[in-house]
Every structure is written in structure tokens, then in C-alpha cells.
Design a protein around this nucleic acid. Sequence first.
DNA 1: AAGTGGTCTAGACCACGAT
DNA 2: TCGTGGTCTAGACCACTTA
Lengths: 261, 261
Amino acid sequence: MFELYKQVVDQLRPSAAAYRRIADALRSRIASGGLPVGAKLPTETELAEEYGVARQTAREGLRLLVAEGLVVARRPHGHFVKPRELMMYRPQKESQPQPESPEMDRYCRQITEEGRVPSQTIEVSLVPANPEIAKRLEVEPGAVVVARRRVRSINGTATNINDSHYPLEVVKDSEIMNPADIPRGTNQVLIDLGYAQDRVIDEFFARMPTPDEIHRLSLEGSTPVIIHVCTGYTEAGRPVRCTWNVLPSDRHIIVSERKWA
Amino acid sequence: MFELYKQVVDQLRPSAAAYRRIADALRSRIASGGLPVGAKLPTETELAEEYGVARQTAREGLRLLVAEGLVVARRPHGHFVKPRELMMYRPQKESQPQPESPEMDRYCRQITEEGRVPSQTIEVSLVPANPEIAKRLEVEPGAVVVARRRVRSINGTATNINDSHYPLEVVKDSEIMNPADIPRGTNQVLIDLGYAQDRVIDEFFARMPTPDEIHRLSLEGSTPVIIHVCTGYTEAGRPVRCTWNVLPSDRHIIVSERKWA
DNA sequence: AAGTGGTCTAGACCACGAT
DNA sequence: TCGTGGTCTAGACCACTTA
């Protein structure tokens, strides 16, 4: 009987697995707005009955949508269309005044951060540099560097990891070793120490989060993270800072403006 | 008998599902280098025997690693540790001369693109603007715009989607409507048409790819994509171009340099 | 107490690529 | 032909949250 069913459906959509057809159907309903943000999807059992398949098969279809980031599973409530609330992230804004054109204003208004309560945890430690950091600070892998680790939160939910690394000899005995907020900013401390940054190189890439990042950011799986690595150099070309930012991609959009030559 | 096994293991790592323990073990072996890039993992059947679980359970563990992007499944060969080969993507480089400091040179040498054969397909069409494009071009959703769609490839594998959109009245009857390479560049055409771009806004975010993107870029699932939206404005503040780039995150790293005020 | 998703089993057949 | 992963079934028990 199931064989007959499968043959019939296969005529309609050949070479598509049942769980893919289920996912396709739900994806269409989401895209068309039939299932708006926050809406509850059919339960696994309901889908299984509707499509005449085993529960595991219906489950595979839902899993596909979860992996695509369209849907979240909330036990024991069900599966829901996932909302997407983006927060502005402007690397240029952290340090220097930025040209504010009317267009940029428009973008900023679109993604407002009104009435949010920011907070952060700070932790400073001496650690052996991992290969990625060592390469950028131009020290031997495993050499001891100062790591100033922060997790920033807004309204209690973690929004980003911000781990700044400094060569030990540059910042030892300075305020940067102090695990507390530095009102004038760590970059000003570097200037006072005689290591003013002249230029920085930004790198961006994305990947799935590591288990450690999932833990520190309280992520649901299936949310990619954007890695923003920012390395600062003195005028002489010496790297004095390497900041490793981890941004959950469902909470951030990176925006910047530049003149067009 | 399996019950006894499970109790014993649960004492060692309480509250960890069997498939998670399997994934953890394999992840450690990959991180430590015991399983180097390209190495073949145990088969599903072997893992099931080794851990005394059903094949489906071992399979769940492997699936976790695939979803994390650490591993690829290649039927009928097995699962393999996934390589990661990054290509430089420099949005600033596309149009204007860029400050080339010694540090930037170093980065560029690190990720070389020697001996690669680039190619691209171009397709031009009139399409109704989707909401995202319409918002940025400041036209009504559904208004007709010119879409110049490109898929760029290197050595035959697609590396990025590059869809530029223009307001119809700006580019109608111009070279931009011609689905062929424009040697002097589309931006020069805009200048000649009297719509020189004065400044651009860049936006970056990441998410899992849509089925359409998976198809156009020949992606394996579980690779996030980076979306780079670049909107160009005339000096009067009119948007005249909106380019929608899709970059597979396992093939690209975005690099840029800026002066530090 | 009820109903959800999370995990697991012990089978089965298939498509595909190498040999 | 053989072994791989891909798909599927028909059960089972559990953890969790809300009513």
C-alpha cells in the first residue's frame, strides 16, 4: 500500500525523497507567507499522517528546515517559523568618526537598538597563542600573549564574543591586564604606551559554530557565525592587537559606508 | 546487555546522547590532527559496532559533524575530513586603487590565486524587484528593474553569485542591457550615463543557503553563505545600483584594510 | 496527565561507484 | 558484484513543559 503511494507520488515528482518533498512543501508555505514568522508548524505525527510516512521520515523533513535556519524546534511545543532580528554591527564605528550620509542614517534607523540594556563580562588571562592569533601577531605559536575576553550581551542574551589579544611585552603592567571596563578604551591605552595603531586589516568569514561557541553564545545549533578578525599595526608595521570577534549570524548585520573613487 | 553498556558510559559522561559522544570523539580526533584533512572516517557500520549502537545512531553522530562543516559524505566512499581552501574577496579592490601596506601584501601572498582560470556566465533580464532589492533601490516592491546576473567560476567550480540590479529608467537602452562582458566595467557605464556613484553602503550577513543558491553554486549542504549587498548612490543620494553577492563561506575570506584615525 | 520533540533499535531496500 | 551512504519503517522509551 505504501509502495503504491510512493509510485504515485514519484510520478508527480520523480527522484525526490519523501522527506524532501515534505520540506519543500513547508518551505513554500513559509516563503509565501502562509506560515508567517512565529507560526507553529504541524507536529511530526501530523506530518507523518498527512503524507502517509513514518514519523522519522516527517522528522527528517523538519530537520532539513531546521538546518536551513528557517525553523526552530522548541520542545515540547513544536516547530516554529524562526524570526530574524538583526542588530547593526559597524566595525568602523568603534573607533573613528564615520561619514554619516543620509543613506547611512536611513539604514541605521531601520535597525534600531532603542531601549536595549547592554552588559558584558570581561576576563583577562595569559594564554599560549593559538596558531591563528600567533600568525597575525607575528609571534611563535604557543608564545604567551595577553587575552582580554569579553562576551557582550543585550537584554541578557549574548550577542557577541570579543577576544582581544596583545603581545605580552606590549601591554604588561598596563591597565589592559586589569579585567574591568576601561572607560577611555584599550586603543587609547596602546597610544599611551607608545604603540599607536596606524592601520588595521579586517578579515571576515563565516562557518558553523564550534561547541565552545555554541556554549558561550547560547546558540541554537544551525546558526552560522561570522568571524571578524581585526589586526592593528603601528606605523612601523608591527602588529600590536588582534581582535577575534564571533557574531551569531541571526543576530547581526555588518554595515559600513565608503566613498567611491 | 546494551543497557549495561549505556549505564557504564553514562557514568563517564552523564546526560550525553550516544550519537553526541560519537561526534565528540571524532571531533577530538580531527582537532588533534589524528584525522588530518582528507582522511577517511570509520564507516557507519564500523562506528555502530565500535560503540555498540544501531547504525542510525552512529549515523546521527556523523550527521552532526557534517552539519558543523567538519566532514563531507561522499557516497559510496565514506565520510572524509573536509578541506578548507579560502579565496580572497576584496570588495574595495573591485573599483578603486587600494592602499597596499606591507601587511596587506603579506595577507595577499598567503592566499594566492596563481594559475587559476576564471570564467563567468552572464544573463540580463527585466524582473520585478523583490522586497530586499526594492527597499535598497527605493522603488516599489514588484517594480521592474534590470537584473544582470553573473555566476563567476574559477577552474570550473562556481565561486560566487553576483547579481547587480539597476533602476530601469537609469540603464535602459544602455550597454548594461547587453548580456556580455563590458570591458570598461558597468560602473564606468553609469558614469557615462550621468549617474556616477559617489558613495556605497556595504552590508554583510551570513545564513544557510537557499535551495536555489545550492543549485547555482553547486554547494554541498551545510556550508553557510555570506551575503554582501553593495548599494551605490549618486552624489544627490539617489540609489542607482544594488549588487547582491553570494559567497560560499568555505571558499572565501573577505579582507580589507583601513586607516586608523 | 497529556502531548511534544529527542533518542534509539533492528530490521529493509535502493543508488551509486569501484572492481 | 560488493560496500558505501541514502532513505524508510514500525515500533519503543524518555525529558520536558504546560494545563
